[in-house]
Design a protein around this nucleic acid. Structure first.
Length: 407
RNA sequence: GCCGGGUUACCCGAGUGGCCAAAGGGGGCUGACUGUAAAUCAGCUGCGGAACGCUUCGGUGGUUCGAAUCCAUCACCCGGCACCA
């Protein structure tokens, strides 16, 4: 096993906080001494998973633990989902059906395997123990934490101050999550910075159970491709880890320059010393930022699709965007009969017919703005009529990057 | 249950009788430039073979020559009060 200091460096890379600061080192040392792997916990909602580079940040960190020989326990919060983490904004969620939970669990497994080492990953549902408790046990559990403590959580405190309602059951949420840590005997719990209170509650509860309290490790939220908000599926600013190599490569290349450092740090394993070196060269003008971003894109694509796919995506980019060639591969579609009239096709109807415009109005606009060309020749009038025969085998280009070949 | 505020295009939001297919911003799209699909600048962004033609401003029905704008009613959201404890 690697030297403790090296392990620490790898594990704390990109973290915003490790609490308590030196606790992790002590845990690692003890694990090395006893040969007993650390139990590293991550809690997840049983809602439909959308694994993108942002959610992958925490998973990759877990993978680092696994590579160092530690055990990961993923807790699917199927029971706590009935409460819903009380942000004060979201309504109490409907309990998911057994089938839905099973479905989601399967999807998780498929996607998580792309990052985690399945052999060192254990998946547990917290309904297993939380659902089995009787009321007396619940009361006993609740007696382990004080109202003053729970009310210390920011959102509770704010809602109380503002006179908003707080469901009694909501107060139990941190307790449930904390109890999960007790049940699995967590040494480390990973989470976003919004998990601070819940993870700390785990430490409190574990202490009362006579366990060595877990270390809380917090990761920042990856900024999405829009450059301002956190990456999330609902905001549409995400790069999915199952996206095809070319799409992934393109999206990463389009992030703004300022995001490069955090993407390198959180989404790749390139040594930070090297990253800083590259960025310094860009700063001084010795290196074109574009080339650093291409390196970033290659690194990330390689993680999810392998080196060969990354190299291919890079070459394809060079061909299409740097040299202006047509892509090596593009969708093909037969010329729909119904748009041909007397052997001729109205250009706007063609775009609609092959799905490159949603209506003739949009098609007209695209052509007027000079965004449409056929076999490299720009169409300059929305009234243009085209010979149907000449269209077979033609390549239609709309905008900078939408290509389509007509059969 | 009562009183008040609200519901406008993909999102936010202006508009209180005609000049409104509806300001502005965001997002999206196209072009120029470039280092890339970054940044910047410009244009477009309801539908429509395009004609000041058609359909839009929560739903329905009215008033009016004319309604996003006024009235009635219904639905939902947000405040305050009441009822119930």
């Amino acid at each position: 096993m690697a030297d403790i200091q090296e392990q620490l460096a790898a594990l704390t890379r990109g973290t915003t906080d490790v609490i308590p600061a030196h606790g992790l080192e002590a845990k690692l040392r003890r694990s090395a001494d006893t040969g007993k792997p650390l139990v590293v916990k991550l809690g997840l909602d049983p809602t439909a998973p959308d694994i993108h580079l942002g959610s992958a940040v925490v998973l990759r960190k877990l993978r680092t633990f696994q590579d160092l020989g530690h055990q990961v326990v993923v807790i699917i919060g199927d029971f706590t989902a009935m409460i819903g983490d009380p942000t004060g904004k979201s309504e109490t969620r409907k309990p998911l059906s057994r089938d839905e939970i099973a479905d989601n669990a399967r999807t998780y497994a498929e996607q998580y395997c792309r990052i985690l080492d399945a052999d060192r990953t254990q998946v547990r549902f917290n309904s297993e123990w939380l659902g089995a408790m009787d009321f007396g046990e619940v009361i006993h559990l609740a007696s382990r934490m004080t109202v003053a403590h729970v009310m210390g959580r920011d959102d509770f405190a704010n809602r109380w101050r503002d006179g908003q309602s707080i469901g009694l059951h909501e107060l139990l949420y941190p307790l449930c999550q904390a109890y999960d840590s007790v049940v699995i005997g967590a040494d480390v719990e990973m989470g976003g910075t919004d998990q601070l209170f819940n993870i700390m509650a785990g430490r409190t509860l574990q202490g009362q159970w006579g366990q060595d309290p877990q270390i809380g490790m917090f990761m920042p939220l990856l900024v999405g491709t829009d450059g301002t908000q956190k990456m999330s599926k609902s905001l549409g600013n995400y790069v999915g880890i199952t996206e095809p190599p070319d799409a992934m490569y393109g999206k990463i290349l389009s992030i703004s320059d300022e995001l490069m450092r955090s993407y390198f740090e959180l989404a790749t394993s390139v040594p930070m010393q090297e990253v800083e070196g590259l960025l310094a060269q860009a700063e001084s003008g010795a290196l074109n930022p574009k080339d650093i971003k291409r390196r970033l894109a290659r690194e990330i694509v390689a993680i999810y699709h392998g080196d060969a796919a990354a190299a291919a995506a890079d070459a394809e980019f060079e061909r299409v965007h740097a040299r202006g060639d047509i892509p090596s591969d593009m969708p093909e579609i037969p010329l729909p009969d119904h748009i041909v009239k007397d052997g001729r096709v109205w250009s706007c109807r063609l775009l609609v017919g092959i799905g490159l415009a949603s209506g003739t109005g949009e098609a007209r606009r695209l052509i007027q703005q000079g965004g449409v060309s056929i076999d490299g020749v720009r169409i300059n009038s929305p009234d243009a009529e085209l010979e149907a025969d000449a269209l077979h085998g033609a390549i239609i280009k709309v905008g900078a990057r939408r290509f389509l070949r007509i059969l």
